[in-house]
Simulated assay, not measured.
Amino acid sequence: MKLKICGMKYPDNIIEVGAVLPDYMGFIFWEKSARFFDGVIPPIPESIKKTGVFVDETIDTIVAKVQKHKLQAVQLHGKETVAFCTELKSKLQNRIELIKVFSILDDFNFDVLKPYESVCDYFLFDTKGKLPGGNGTTFDWKVLQNYPSSKPFFLSGGIGLNEMEAVNEIIKTNLPIYAIDVNSKFEIEPGLKNSNDLRRIRELSLQ
């Protein structure tokens, strides 16, 4: 099971968390976020895919951030259309992984996913809340029993150490869960992660 740690902000903490060797590390380029990243990403192990998180941003801005920070993945957390995703992929010459986020609470119309399947590498399911992400709450994972696609997805939304038992149960199903995405449940403050707790979840996700 892959692990994505999102919402990184502080250089020293980025290096510290990099030593945990997550598969993905997320940097939020949405100015309204308490975890907004506006610095220089320090050197981290090459095995970690640097992921830029954007919310209804322009294609030119996303491309510029990808080039500046040498991102390997882009996560779209807004209302981006299929046409937008297609143009972005083209501009980036298909060199990055594209993750499209869909927010869920108690139910979800999975029909909306079909047009995105051919252009996105992964979906990410997060909890619908006041903010596009980082709300620290889980959604009803039973909704995913109706997932009709074979497209791999990231499971996100309020996942902490206390949720790992439930995570392991859903992983045992036939759902194509590619990774778990963690953020606020591992924070000392917004953007500052507890590396000891992250080491523990890294161990659990490898089991």
Score class of each variant (00 low, 15 high):
Y122N: 12
Y122S: 12
Y122W: 14
Y122I: 11
Y122R: 14
F123A: 14
F123T: 14
F123Y: 15
L124T: 07
L124M: 15
L124N: 11
L124K: 09
F125N: 10
F125R: 06
F125H: 10
D126T: 10
D126I: 07
D126G: 12
D126W: 13
D126P: 14
D126M: 10
T127N: 13
T127H: 12
T127D: 13
T127A: 15
K128D: 07
K128H: 14
K128L: 15
K128N: 09
K128R: 15
G129Y: 08
G129A: 15
G129M: 05
G129V: 05
K130P: 00
K130V: 15
L131S: 08
L131R: 11
L131D: 12
L131Y: 09
L131T: 04
P132D: 08
P132H: 09
P132Y: 12
P132I: 08
P132V: 06
G133M: 11
G133N: 04
G133C: 13
G133Q: 07
G133I: 05
G134E: 07
G134K: 10
N135A: 04
N135C: 02
N135H: 06
N135V: 03
N135P: 07
N135F: 03
G136H: 03
G136M: 03
T137I: 14
T137K: 15
T137N: 15
T137M: 12
T137E: 15
F139Y: 12
F139Q: 06
F139R: 06
D140E: 04
D140V: 00
D140K: 11
W141C: 06
W141N: 03
W141Y: 05
W141V: 04
W141G: 04
K142P: 00
K142G: 14
K142M: 00
K142L: 00
V143Q: 05
L144K: 00
L144N: 01
Q145S: 14
Q145K: 14
Q145T: 06
Q145Y: 03
Q145W: 00
N146L: 01
Y147G: 01
P148N: 04
P148L: 09
P148A: 05
P148M: 05
P148Q: 02
S149N: 06
S150Y: 00
S150P: 00
K151Q: 13
K151P: 04
P152W: 01
P152Y: 05
P152I: 02
P152V: 02
P152N: 03
F153W: 08
F153K: 02
F153I: 02
F153A: 04
F154C: 02
F154H: 02
F154G: 04
F154P: 06
L155T: 02
L155D: 03
L155C: 02
L155P: 08
L155W: 06
S156Q: 03
S156P: 08
G157F: 09
G157H: 07
G157T: 07
G157N: 08
G158N: 10
I159V: 09
I159E: 10
I159A: 10
I159S: 07
I159C: 10
G160N: 10
G160R: 09
L161S: 12
L161N: 15
L161V: 13
L161A: 12
L161K: 14
L161P: 14
